[in-house]
Design a binder for these strands. Sequence first.
DNA 1: TAGATTGTTAATCGATTAACAATC
DNA 2: TAGATTGTTAATCGATTAACAATC
Lengths: 219, 219
Amino acid sequence: MIETGDLAVPAATVARLPHYLRALLDLQSAGVRTTSSTELADVAGVSSAQLRKDLSYLGSYGTRGVGYDVASLSTVISTALGLGSTHRLAIIGLGNLGHALANYSGYTTRGFEVVALLDVADAVVGTRPSGSLAVEHLDDLEQVIKREAVTMVVLATPAHAAQSVAERVIAAGVREILSFSPVALQLPDDAVVRSVDVAGELQILAFHAAARTATRSVG
Amino acid sequence: MIETGDLAVPAATVARLPHYLRALLDLQSAGVRTTSSTELADVAGVSSAQLRKDLSYLGSYGTRGVGYDVASLSTVISTALGLGSTHRLAIIGLGNLGHALANYSGYTTRGFEVVALLDVADAVVGTRPSGSLAVEHLDDLEQVIKREAVTMVVLATPAHAAQSVAERVIAAGVREILSFSPVALQLPDDAVVRSVDVAGELQILAFHAAARTATRSVG
DNA sequence: TAGATTGTTAATCGATTAACAATC
DNA sequence: TAGATTGTTAATCGATTAACAATC
């Protein structure tokens, strides 16, 4: 359960809210004005029971017998997700992945803005990987976070650097980190870290592939 | 529960096995030969009770009073994850992200090999984004999958193309897909899809940030 | 009113935690 | 033997599902 002033939302529900928002925006751009829990759940890839249960944690925004207004429900979810205010991102580490993340168009669209890029390599510092922002040196991390009022950090450094960089980020007052390093960061409890581990995801798929083979040859 | 010939492993446990493997390899390269559930759990970022419970699904590979042999436990987990055989990957969509994924060094190392790159853009087909492999045209998807004996696909296309490309991938006999498109793919039950949604992860962080603010201002 | 669909309750299921007997 | 640490059992907790009363 993640407690907000007025709401208490299970972590599993929070993790699905972005899917619902995406599904609503898809429906909206397809011209759909009103939807049902069945339709929306279908687009989002969950069961209608789960969708209704999840939405119930946010309040009661549907109309019995009718369904949900697409536009207003997306506002409700956007607001719950804190996308009203803009989140200012710094991307740390501009290797392959950091470079791609700097050029990713996904956040600029809604609620997120990349305001700083940082790295340690002389070859990279000073360049403009996304055209606009120039990469600054990691030595200046604390100043840059303060100057740009950074509220979230995307960590795309090599694994061996992730822990120490994360500590500096936290010390500088940032609490939200999205890490692409496959290491468990040891940080204070009030830090929120989400991790994306591409190799790990592939290994999970490999487990399923192995299970399929083993099951087929036995059963 | 994911059933293998001899094992039944909960999905939540499977999702943590890559962390354990990573932690073991870290310990190994630090020269540690024997570890305990406490130490390993610490490095992997879980509780020791959870680690022991998870490992128990794979069998009984520790020694009471002593701990676990780092090298042999990593073999056990590697094998369970199906990393003994090599998995042949095709990356579809070579925009920003696909380009970064093609150059990612993480998989080449262990059990995974990128054997094909596919895209639709004339400007990209024929180029060699990672130096070696040339990008082929998506029209030839089925042939390429057969020719290269592709077993897993990494989907990095724009969202609107993801569903139809995924259907072709499945029809061509591939069952494991790692998708970077933030859409719920509607596929047969025997397909295994893992999704990575960067914007979604940021939104989850934003929820936590909003919760923090709301709680602080109330409590 | 009759039909549709929400929001909620209760039942089920799965995952986590804690504690300890087994055993090196 | 005494100390350490696993593997497992039982208790708790959280998440999902199903069913339906409320209500548009």
